[in-house]
Simulated assay, not measured.
Amino acid sequence: MAAACSPSVFLLMVTGQIESAQFPEFDDLYCKYCFVYGHDWVPTTGLEEGISQITSKSGDAQQTLVWNFPIDITFKSTNPYGWPQIVLSVYGPDIFGNDVVRGYGAVHVPFTPGRHERTIAMFVPESTSKLQKFTSWLTGRRPEFTDPRVVAQGEGREVTRVRSQGFVTISFNVVTKDMKKLGYDVSLSDMQNPSLMSLTEGIHKY
Rank of each mutant, 00 (worst) to 15 (best):
L188F: 05
C31A: 12
L88C: 02
S56F: 13
T45L: 00
L199C: 07
S52D: 10
T55D: 09
F145I: 02
S89N: 08
Q62E: 15
F96H: 10
I95Y: 04
V168D: 01
H116C: 13
D178G: 03
A2D: 09
S198W: 09
K177P: 03
A61N: 08
H39Q: 11
Q22H: 15
G97E: 02
A4V: 09
S58Y: 04
Q62V: 11
R157V: 11
R157A: 14
V186K: 13
E201H: 14
S195T: 06
T55W: 10
D147K: 05
E117I: 14
L65I: 10
P148S: 06
E117Q: 14
P194A: 13
E117V: 15
E155A: 12
E48I: 14
P43T: 01
K57R: 15
G103A: 02
K180T: 03
I54C: 11
S171L: 08
I54P: 09
P143N: 04
T78C: 03
K57I: 11
R115E: 05
S136K: 08
F172V: 00
L47P: 03
L65P: 10
F26Q: 09
G16P: 01
S58L: 07
H108N: 09
E25A: 12
D94K: 01
R102I: 08
T135C: 10
Q85R: 11
S6K: 04
A106G: 04
P24N: 15
R163H: 02
E144H: 08
W83G: 11
V66F: 06
A152D: 01
D99R: 03
P80W: 05
F96R: 06
S52K: 01
P80F: 12
F123P: 01
K177M: 06
P93N: 09
V162Y: 02
S187I: 12
K57A: 14
T55A: 11
M13D: 00
Q192R: 15
L138G: 07
C31T: 01
V9N: 01
D178E: 06
T146A: 12
P110Q: 03
D190F: 09
Q53T: 12
R157G: 05
H116A: 09
M191I: 14
H39R: 13
S198Q: 10
A61F: 11
M197P: 05
A2Q: 07
V174K: 02
G140K: 00
Y33I: 05
Q192T: 13
K57G: 15
D147Y: 12
K32S: 11
Q63S: 12
Q85W: 09
P84W: 03
V109L: 07
D40Y: 14
G59T: 06
P84S: 09
N79R: 14
V42N: 10
S195E: 08
V151W: 04
F10A: 03
Y30L: 07
Q85L: 11
V107Y: 05
V168R: 02
L11F: 12
T55N: 13
V90L: 04
A21M: 08
F69R: 07
T176N: 00
G103S: 03
K177V: 02
M191G: 14
A4D: 11
V162A: 00
P148T: 05
R157F: 13
P113G: 08
S189K: 12
T64A: 10
S58H: 08
C34V: 02
T64L: 12
K133D: 09
K76R: 09
